[in-house]
Simulated scan of single mutants.
Amino acid sequence: MRIGTWNLAGRWSDEHRRLMLDADCDVWLLTEVSERTSLPGYAVSPSQASTARRRWWAAVASRQPMASSPDPHPASAQAQVGATTYVSSVLPWKSCGARHPWVGARHADKTKHVVDDLLLRLRAADSLVWGGDWNHALAGREYAGSQGGRREVTRAVEELGLVVPTSELPHPIEGLRSIDHIAVREGRAAAARRLEATHEGKRLSDHDAYVVDTDL
């Protein structure tokens, strides 16, 4: 099974479509998704809530039969593909402020609130893949999130029995590690790689795409 994640930054073009089709993923965990997003051969199941005009917080796209599920958090989308539950999430970033759906005074408090909501709903999944724009590196220097927030994310990953093969991959900013992740059940063979989100020297998004091949 090949799973990808990409923060589209609300953009969509033929070049975005081409990158995603060339990646040949079975399932995509997308974030900041334009309502114009259309991928031949894939069904797209977006979150109910929008982060901006004509932009969903998250979506799951699958070229296999998929059943939508209630969002486990306003900034997440969830879908069932076969026996596996797929969740794509945006987690709080350091400067996200106090607007909905973030709750708490400090960044770490906001992250804990989201993580606790997700854990209530994801613990029951027998087979789970969780990913998206977590706004935290899980190794190295922390840039987008906070050390307290990272501890909350790591706690959730461990409690759900997941591993994060994207944690050592590079961020588009040199010297940083990825904040976009894909987590799979511990014990599943998984190999991860980064896809640079550029076309003719121009960035398609301020985030690169990341792909994991895993045995589900």
Results as ranks from 00 to 15, higher is better:
Ser146Gly: 05
Ser95Val: 01
Ser68Leu: 09
Trp93Asn: 07
Gly140His: 06
Asp116Ser: 09
Leu138Arg: 07
Gly161Asp: 02
Arg106Trp: 01
Glu174Cys: 05
Leu118Glu: 04
Ala58Pro: 12
Pro165Val: 04
Gly161Cys: 05
Ser167Val: 13
Arg141Thr: 05
Gly161Lys: 06
Val90Gln: 10
Val184Lys: 01
Ile182Asp: 01
Ala98Asn: 15
Lys110Tyr: 04
Leu160Phe: 05
Trp102Thr: 09
Arg193Glu: 14
Leu128Phe: 03
Cys96Arg: 02
Ile179Phe: 00
Ala77Lys: 01
Glu159Met: 12
Arg99Glu: 14
Thr85Asn: 02
Ala137Pro: 02
His113Phe: 14
Tyr86Lys: 04
Trp102Leu: 01
Val115Ala: 13
Ala83Asp: 12
Val153Phe: 08
His181Gln: 06
Arg150Lys: 13
Ala98Tyr: 06
Thr154Asn: 12
Ser88Tyr: 01
Pro72Cys: 06
Gly104Leu: 08
Pro172Ser: 05
Pro165Asn: 03
Thr111Gly: 05
Asp126Thr: 05
Ser167Met: 15
Gly161Tyr: 05
Glu174Phe: 06
Arg99Ala: 15
Val129Thr: 11
Glu168Asn: 07
Ala59Pro: 03
Leu176Tyr: 13
Thr85Gln: 13
Pro65Lys: 10
Pro92Gln: 02
Gly132Arg: 07
Gly175Met: 05
Arg151Phe: 02
Val163Gly: 00
Trp93Lys: 03
